[in-house]
Design a protein around this nucleic acid. Structure first.
Length: 211
DNA sequence: AACTCGGGGCA
DNA sequence: TGCCCAGAGTT
């Protein structure tokens, strides 16, 4: 078992409940929730989408909203101008090009406005069961600290991590690294004292003498 | 690879 | 007031 798999198995024991914490019922809801989650938090997104999806949970219902109306519904999330514009444009494209369905490939998803590689990976892995390792700020920070990756480029981090794990673990590993990044391996003042991974951690070894 | 853009929430 | 927060797009 390589280092990456050992780390994942430790995290599996530490966070047996790790999963996508965005509330959604359909691929479309997950796509929209993930677009909303950029530079925000899952908790704030869930509060908003509870009301939003009650009335606007499909592309055809969504495009019945004006941009101003959608902005009012997502105002507390921040960056609402771009997000509202992208959600409406993406919904229009889903209707015109994909029969109102969410496409099932990363290549098609990233063509949608406001959908980057991270969001596309989240959607295909969680909604369609296609193995994908989504890299966000938490994931990159954690894998870099643990010495699994050395890049700041999310694409490179994705390549490096997936090369060390079996496809079957991609999706779960993503959620495990996020959980660890949020609960323990925080950007500021990480809780190294209660972390079971310090043995394998480059960051911990480098900062040990300063602690 | 580096840079810009973008805004509410919370300490 | 400053800084955080499940990124995307452009150069």
């Amino acid at each position: 078992m390589n280092k990456a798999r050992k780390i994942v198995s430790v995290l599996q024991e530490l966070y047996p409940e790790a999963k996508c914490e965005l509330n959604y019922r359909t691929p479309y809801e997950l796509l929209i929730a993930t677009m909303l989650s950029a530079q925000s938090t899952d908790k704030r997104v869930n509060i908003i989408t509870k009301d939003l999806f009650a009335s606007y949970n499909t592309p055809d219902k969504m495009v019945s909203l004006s941009e101003g109306e959608l902005i009012e519904l997502i105002r507390t999330i921040g960056f609402y101008n771009n997000k509202a514009k992208n959600i409406l444009m993406t919904s229009h494209i889903l209707l015109e090009k994909y029969g109102g369905e969410v496409p099932k490939t990363r290549e098609e998803l990233v063509k949608l406005p406001g959908v980057g590689r991270k969001t596309a990976n989240v959607v295909i892995s969680n909604a369609f069961g296609i193995p994908a390792f989504a890299v966000d700020t938490h994931v990159g920070r954690v894998t870099n600290r643990l010495g699994l990756t050395k890049s700041k480029n999310p694409n490179q981090i994705e390549i490096d991590v997936t090369s060390q794990l079996p496809k079957k673990l991609y999706t779960q590993a993503h959620h495990l690294f996020i959980f660890h990044g949020r609960k323990c391996c925080k950007a500021i003042r990480p809780l190294c004292d209660s972390c079971p991974l310090t043995v394998n951690c480059t960051y911990y070894k480098q900062n040990k003498q300063e602690r």
